[in-house]
Nucleic acid binder design. Structure first.
Length: 627
DNA sequence: CTTAGGG
DNA sequence: CCCTAAG
């Protein structure tokens, strides 16, 4: 592919890593973008996607584990190529394809990488190395890119210019050494290198700042029992400190660890790029969120952040499937992300939202006819929902976090657990609807929100038979029937029946006048008892009204007819009616009564009662309401 | 699944 | 609304 000034191709690919067979998979979706000559990022064309498609496949296949964490896109400055690390891995051929226009640099590096890799470890995953300071870089399997980038932020490595380097080769190199703050993916250590921990090093007081990289590495090995080739002092120090203190709250430098505790820290150590981190973080955030065009040049660093950010998300998800390295990246990422950057909803989340709607339509409502109408309604809420979540999003889908406050990620969690009910899940799912509701209070919003909630409900029904307590104290329930069915098998396994019992309650929805009219209309047309029919034809847009609901409502209407109407006739209103509760207009009530009497007498003949004589007025109303 | 009815 | 029983 051409990597010229005109345009660089970029691959940042969108793919779903469904590594975990179960729901816990957390696909990271990268947006394919390309870098224009001016450095801006624009959405990739289909062609671009196609060109790199095979890489994606490769990635799925060859990425076993933690290497994923290292999937940091290489950012080649202005004329750049952005590739996911994995794309470069083990693929000198791929590299060539991509970089042939920059052969001089690329090939050299490539070769060097190869050799270095070979010496390091078998499944070496190579990547671009800084061309200027080879010795400052190390190649590790998988995570080298990260390591390199972190190197950049070390004192030892001259952190490079972001933009001023315009020649291709240099750019490439710079891309690697571009300063990266801690929030970006931490360098991972090749945990495969099993070396015997030498804890002797760790005896007594350890003043990490005084150690050389070599010593730090040694200390690292002593701490974690495996070797690292990371040369980023800061990272090493932090990591070691964390390891020794078993704490995540470790400054990047200036730590003195004594007896496995942080004794003191000097603040004079500098964190080169700390200052600009927040800003960059923000940019990255907005970038990711809006998929906006990125100011290329000045955006050099933001760009890399952008990708790091994405990667970070991916990494966090991937942790689960990386048993070995549980300690480092995981902890760190979580910590850092929390501190410095709010996590945006993953695309996966969005996709799942739409999935929900799909499930809703297909799963619960058997007739395709109804979805059309409702889907239109659902579409908007979907968007709204997303934004809401987005604005709130900050928490990680850990249960505790969610419990604490944000519920944004709750649905996310629930989805990841698709098919695996968990009892305590209920408690923190609680607030989800609340959040949503708060977000959508607009006129249309209410209706839409309802629809959406319904969607959630149905969704849950189809996956996890758990309930949700809405913010208003209402409870969303799974489809009863499903619950019943599931109880013996799936549900039983993971959760207690009692839980299901009390909590599995459908969110209460007051019947609107409109609904009532439709119901009446439906009864008039199809007859009482044809609830299914009525639901299908008259309530296609109200997915949350089941035939049972209709039946119940009708029953209540009948009762109302028998009580309320007479009362009114008496001129005595039994009790002041809550203003918020809109009394059913007598006209409708009357009609209900008539219909009821009519049909009950008529011997339940189903023939549509088209001749509701006096009700003409109401009849027309329903007619209009119906369509 | 759909209805009916009791809770 | 929920739960069940019965077509």
């Amino acid at each position: 592919m051409e990597v010229g000034d005109s345009h660089g191709a970029v691959v940042n690919k969108s793919e779903e890593n469904d590594f975990e067979k179960k729901g816990s998979s957390d696909p990271v979706v990268y947006q394919l973008v390309r870098v224009e000559g001016d450095g801006t990022l624009v959405p990739a064309t289909e062609d671009d996607v196609l060109q790199f498609e095979h890489f994606l496949h490769d990635e799925k296949v060859d990425l076993p584990s933690i290497e994923d964490v290292g999937h940091v896109e290489e950012f080649f400055s202005n004329d750049c190529i952005l590739l996911k690390k994995s794309d470069l891995e083990d693929g000198s051929s791929k590299l060539k394809t991509i970089e042939h226009t920059q052969k001089s640099g690329a090939d050299l590096e490539e070769n060097r990488l190869q050799s270095m890799d070979d010496s390091l470890s078998p499944p070496s995953k190579c990547s671009v190395v800084h061309g200027q300071q080879p010795d400052k870089f190390l190649i590790e399997q998988g995570d080298n890119s990260i390591a390199q980038q972190n190197n950049a932020s070390t004192e030892t490595t001259k952190s490079t210019v972001l933009n001023d380097s315009c020649n291709a080769e240099k750019d490439k190199a710079d891309a690697c050494s571009r300063p990266v703050d801690d929030t970006s993916t931490e360098p991972s250590v090749s945990g495969v290198n099993s070396s015997v921990p030498d804890f002797s090093i760790l005896q007594g007081e350890v003043r990490l700042d005084d150690l050389t990289i070599r010593e730090l590495q040694e200390a690292f090995r002593a701490t974690f029992g495996r070797q690292t080739t990371v040369k980023d002092k800061i990272w090493l120090k932090r990591r070691i400190t964390m390891g020794l203190t078993n704490s995540c709250d470790v400054p990047s430098s200036g730590c003195v660890v004594k007896d496995y505790k942080i004794v003191g820290r000097d603040s004079n150590k500098d964190m080169p790029n700390t200052g600009e981190i927040p800003k960059i973080g923000l940019q990255a955030t907005s970038l990711v969120r809006d998929q906006v065009i990125l100011p290329g040049n000045e955006g050099d660093s933001p760009s890399s952040y952008y990708y790091h950010s994405e990667d970070q998300q991916g990494s966090s998800k991937r942790f689960k499937r990386v048993p070995i390295h549980n300690d480092e990246p995981q902890v760190i990422l979580a910590e850092q992300s929390t501190n410095k950057r709010t996590r945006k909803p993953t695309k996966r989340y969005i996709e799942e939202l739409s999935d929900i709607e799909t499930h809703d339509s297909t799963g619960k409502l058997s007739s395709p006819a109804k979805r059309t109408a409702r889907d239109e309604v659902l579409l908007k809420p979907r968007v709204v929902h997303f934004h809401e979540v987005e604005s709130l999003g900050t928490t990680y889908p850990t249960r505790k976090d969610t419990l604490g406050g944000f519920s944004v990620h709750v649905p996310y969690v629930s989805r990841t657990r698709r098919g695996r009910p968990r009892k305590d899940f209920i408690s923190f799912v609680d607030k989800e609807p609340f959040v949503e509701r708060n977000g959508v209070q607009t006129a249309v919003g209410m209706m839409l929100a309802k629809e959406r909630e319904e969607g959630n409900r149905v969704r849950k029904a189809s996956e996890v038979p758990l309930t949700v307590n809405s913010g208003r104290g209402h409870i969303e329930a799974v489809d009863r029937k499903r619950v019943q069915n599931l109880q013996p098998n799936v549900y039983n396994a993971a959760s207690k029946p009692k839980i299901k019992r009390g909590l599995t309650r459908k969110h209460h929805r007051a019947w609107t006048l409109c609904e009532v009219m439709k119901l009446v209309d439906g009864v008039a047309r199809f007859g009482a008892g044809k609830w299914s029919e009525i639901r299908k034809l008259s309530f296609s847009s109200y997915s949350y009204r089941t035939s049972v609901d209709l039946k119940d409502k009708w029953r209540n209407l009948i009762r109302a007819t028998q009580t309320q109407l007479p009362a009114q006739k008496d001129g005595v209103c039994p009790r002041k009616i809550n203003p918020s509760i809109i009394p059913i207009p007598p006209s409708i009530l009357l009609r209900v009564k008539e219909l009821n009497e009519l049909q009950s007498q008529g011997g339940g003949f189903t023939a549509p009662v088209k001749f509701s004589g006096q009700n003409s007025k109401v009849v027309q109303e329903k007619g209009s309401g119906f369509l």
